[in-house]
Nucleic acid binder design. Sequence first.
RNA 1: GCGGAAGUAGCUCAAUUGGUAGAGCUCCAGCCUUCCAAGCUGGAGGUUGCGGGUUCGAGACCCGUCUUCCGCUCCA
Length: 513
Amino acid sequence: MSVKPEDFFKNIISHCKEYGFIFQSSEIYDGLSAVYDYGQNGAELKKNIREYWWKAMVQMHENIVGIDAAIFMHPTTWKASGHVDAFNDPLIDNKDSKKRYRADVLIEEHVAKIEDKIEKEVEKAKKRFENFDEGMFRSTNARVLEYQNKITEINSRFKTALNDGNLAEVKQIIIDCEIVCPISGSRNWTDVRQFNLMFATQLGSVSEESNTIYLRPETAQGIFVNYLNVQKTGRMKIPFGIAQTGKAFRNEIVARQFIFRMREFEQMEMQFFVKPGTEMHWYEYWKTARLKWHNSFGLGNENYKFHDHIKLAHYANAACDIEFKFPFGFKELEGIHSRTDFDLKQHEQFSGKKLQYFDNEENKSYVPYVVETSVGLDRLFLATLSAAYKEEALENGETRVVLNLPPALAPIKAAVFPLVKKDGLPELAEEIINELKYDYIVTYDEKDTVGKRYRRQDAIGTPYCITVDHQSLTDKMVTIRHRDTMQQDRIAIAEVKEFLNERVSLTSLLKKN
RNA sequence: GCGGAAGUAGCUCAAUUGGUAGAGCUCCAGCCUUCCAAGCUGGAGGUUGCGGGUUCGAGACCCGUCUUCCGCUCCA
């Protein structure tokens, strides 16, 4: 069936709400923008994806261990990482052109223009006079001095305004300088606003500035500051990795596209510490390994592609994304970055502590290089769900909505139905559930026709439905109905658990790596 | 943040130019006993996003506000 892409994405969002995967945060209070809650099925799917990642990274690698660092960290952490300075730009919009500018850049460009005028005066004078004394000209010419004073005044006002955090004054400077928008040519400006990447809060009862702490904008720093603790107490030998999953917080200017870009989100990161000079080898290794992991979901290998970063962040010497074909196009799912020794060096400098590793083979100490793999759990959730969501046209003309989730990740692994709710069938179904519930999340349903019950389970991605009928009472067999093919098999009740073990445990997925 | 559109039951939508808020599906309790959503009976569910205003009377008109969607803008 052909559904328009934007409608398809809308249908997925509706489906998420209707079947208890994702609700908007605080919906009864009209919601909170770009914040979402995971419902009963969403929480299971998310937990299963997280568990698969953790096992693939930690359990399957002897040299990778996991930690769980606090969200609160010492404020100096973020000075060292560069997050405090890099993300507090004053922004201003032109109301006519709808263009947004950094206010500081506008003012700097204005100052540069005045400097150009001075240079032009100097050039003109040079041509006009013989025996031209440029130094004298610059310090005495009335026009040059006027320009120079203007520059000094603007710079001093601007510096004071920034130091005081006086955004109204920054706007006033732009007005006083008669700065116009390069596009519209108008001076119709909005107020200047400061956008901070990090959410700040106060530790302790008194809100003094020294007590300001931040909600972490990335989990990686929790790994870096603990790198030596883990290396020493775990007797880790390079190369080794530290993995972590957890919430991070970013005050995005515009957060859109459902759970793709949220202000509160969960990261799954692994920092791999390597000998300097070997980082490109490991960078390539993890690119391959991570793509293979994504492919193991079986959502279609053509839906993934690498996107190499041309412009690198200040800390990286190589970086790429694994992009996924979301309903709204190819977008970043996971980042793989060679972060060099930037972070550890920064923390050495700011903490005054040595963060070196003694390499017995080389017989020397060094700060390790780091290769990072960082995947957004919420994005992975959205990728999985949107690729699994199918609106199928059946032969009889009906449509069926089904989630073709990898069975190991499905919120509910099996549903057990009595064909009819009498004659002892419900009791037998309960017995089967009591047998399975120690290993898997299973559910029971006796309402409506069995066909309707199958469809309900299809909609949440339950891979198997087990139906008890009258014959089951005597032959101890049940019907197993497959989600993807809708085919039915008859198997012994005694074999049901083994049947599920082979199909819905994480083991089969892990073996694909 | 700017511009555009929208907000009525859990969902999809109605409600003549302003005159007592309805339907289908879902849900719940029964009946029926059925292997792929369609049978029967009954029931629950709404301060029409929120707050003001105009009016005898507002779901509808006006103002504000919140949220969502689309497009700009931004994005380690």
